[in-house]
Design a binder for these strands. Structure first.
Length: 280
DNA sequence: TTTGGGGCTATAC
DNA sequence: GTATAGCCCCAAA
């Protein structure tokens, strides 16, 4: 306590936000050592970063500062340890909403919006994942339910139902979805990125904090966002492969057109000279 | 060694 | 007196 308090400057705060956006929360040492931010953070320790992030988080959350740390010394509830995440309960909902102070700049605030600019296929896949993960029907959701869910949230073309059916079939073929009778549901590995057992919440918590930090969303939203990313990557790969095929097809057509042009020229020349041309 | 979390205290209002 | 923010300490991984 001997040293005077060193107030954080806006540059330092910006550097911290950028560092968290780049490395994720909890990587304070990495952020502190990162040459990109070290210019601003050289006078701060990793502990300072952690403390500042904690303060920034609770401020952005609209709650009192570090309410938990001001609770009595006695550790009353050891069953549910305080989480480092600035978490608030959404009113009327059981979903946890993570308020991330960095969400205003480098971090996407709505995972679905950021994909709407992508390929239509990716967009539809994202809509499907969103619908299925929200509907969460253990027996799966039928096409009508999915269409109805998506129509409520997104603008869709008139022939959307047909397009959706096609996407659903494709996702089933790609083993991203399961089809049970006429209903579709998400495969477990799409949500959790593994074919093994679903990890226990305690096991995924560290990753969850990072995911939440990046996405500013709930566990469910994080899972959906991850699924979006997988679908997007796969579709990009698919689009790239299709583009290669298309390029090859166009090249072949150009070659054929060239040959045709050559033939036409020859015929024209022969005709010009009064020769008789036989065309098979 | 690094991180998360609890706690203390200076400062501003 | 209260709220806030910076810093310190300690346990756990």
């Amino acid at each position: 306590m001997g040293n005077p308090k060193q107030k954080w400057t806006s540059e330092e705060e910006e550097a911290l936000r950028a560092g968290v956006a780049k490395h994720g929360t909890g990587k304070w040492k990495n952020i502190q050592k990162d040459p990109e931010f070290n210019h601003f953070l050289y006078s701060r320790s990793n502990i300072d970063l952690k403390d500042k992030w904690r303060n920034m988080s609770v401020s952005a959350n609209g709650q009192g500062p570090r309410e938990k740390s001001r609770t009595p010394k006695a550790k009353i509830n050891t069953d549910s340890p305080a989480t480092p995440l600035p978490i608030a309960q959404a009113p009327g909902s059981s979903a946890l909403v993570v308020v991330d102070p960095a969400s205003t700049d480098a971090i996407m605030d709505d995972s679905s919006k950021c994909l709407l600019d992508g390929k239509t296929v990716s967009k539809y896949n994202a809509m499907i994942y969103e619908a299925l993960s929200t509907l969460k029907d253990p027996n799966g959701s039928d096409t009508s339910a999915i269409v109805s869910f998506i129509e409520k949230r997104h603008e869709v073309p008139q022939n959307f139902r047909r397009l959706l059916s096609s996407r659903l079939r494709r996702l089933v073929a790609q083993e991203k979805l399961e089809k049970v009778q006429n209903c579709y549901r998400l495969r477990r590995e799409v949500l959790y990125g593994t074919k093994g057992p679903i990890p226990k919440p305690k096991e995924i918590r560290p990753r969850l904090s990072q995911i939440n930090s990046y996405l500013g969303g709930t566990l469910e939203e994080a899972a959906v966002a991850a699924a979006y990313k997988v679908a997007e990557a796969e579709n990009k790969s698919f689009v790239a492969a299709e583009a290669v095929k298309e390029a090859e097809r166009v090249a072949k057509m150009a070659e054929e057109a060239d040959a045709f042009l050559q033939l036409a020229k020859e015929i024209y020349d022969k005709c010009s000279r009064g020769e008789v041309v036989m065309v098979a």
